Simulated scan of single mutants.
Amino acid sequence: MPCLEICIPYASILIELPIRFAYFVFVIVFYTSLYVFRTWRRSAPFNYLVYVLTSISTPISTSLYLIHIDQSRWLHAYPLMIIIELIVLVFYTTQQRIKFSHAIGILVILLVYGLIVLLFYFLYVNGFFRMLSFYGVTFEAWYIIYDTHLMLCGVHGYNLQPDEHMYAAGNIHADLPKFLWIIIGHFVLGPVRGFIKALRHSRTNYIC
């Protein structure tokens, strides 16, 4: 929210495409370097340094996305919606009757987002369309669940200790390049690889 307060007065400059693209490239390179070279930042003071840097760069990225939608203080609803979604998820995990799966987490996030959008529809019609454009809060909250699960279950190979909470918090941002490449691999490169594989098989398969 403080980052939004700083960026809103300079919205006319920050919405320029070259600036947005240059910052996107910088963030991807920065996070990729953190993901590739991660051993050195597991201990103090480097874990605190990485946490501070990622905690600054990520809100700037979110602000650049938001000020393209609007340039008013309505944008503060975005971080507030994420906070509400995560608080609801935390309260949900306190019960043990219904297990907390990814599907359940996504349903809880969508339910909270839908109720907030519905509330704004009845209270302020113009605000409804602004809240509707904040669909990114559902994706961001789910990514936090997804990456936390991968770190705690050892899928990323971290084997985190209880005193490495600062390192884990920084990793939520540092793992973004891996998550991005997973999406690109499935939805972009996957069909291309399938098409190339089909072409290769067509050279050797005979027509009966």
Rank of each mutant, 00 (worst) to 15 (best):
I144R: 09
L34T: 00
L132E: 09
T148W: 09
L4S: 03
K178I: 09
I28E: 11
L17K: 13
S63E: 04
D175R: 10
S55T: 11
H186P: 00
M166P: 02
L199A: 10
E16H: 12
D70N: 07
C208V: 13
Y167V: 05
T39Y: 10
I182Q: 11
L49Q: 05
I28G: 06
L4F: 04
V50W: 00
S12Q: 11
Y135D: 07
V137W: 01
A44D: 08
A22I: 13
V192W: 12
W142E: 07
R203C: 12
I87V: 14
Y121L: 06
I67W: 00
S12C: 02
L199M: 15
S43L: 11
P45D: 12
T39C: 00
Y146F: 15
S101L: 04
V27S: 08
H165Q: 11
M81C: 06
N126S: 14
F134Q: 01
L89C: 07
C7M: 13
P18D: 03
V52G: 08
G114C: 05
L17Q: 09
Y51M: 08
T62D: 04
A141G: 09
I19C: 03
T39N: 10
R203Q: 15
V125T: 07
Y23L: 08
Q96T: 09
R20V: 04
G170H: 01
R38L: 01
F30A: 06
V88W: 00
H165D: 07
M151K: 05
C7Q: 03
I183P: 01
V36D: 01
W142T: 06
V117A: 12
I104H: 09
K197W: 13
F37P: 02
I13Q: 09
L115I: 14
I109D: 02
S133L: 14
Y92C: 13
I144W: 10
Q161I: 02
F37L: 02
I82E: 06
L160P: 05
L123K: 00
Y158L: 12
C7E: 01
A169P: 02
P79V: 02
Y78M: 05
L180Q: 00
L110W: 14
R97K: 15
P18C: 04
S12H: 12
D70W: 00
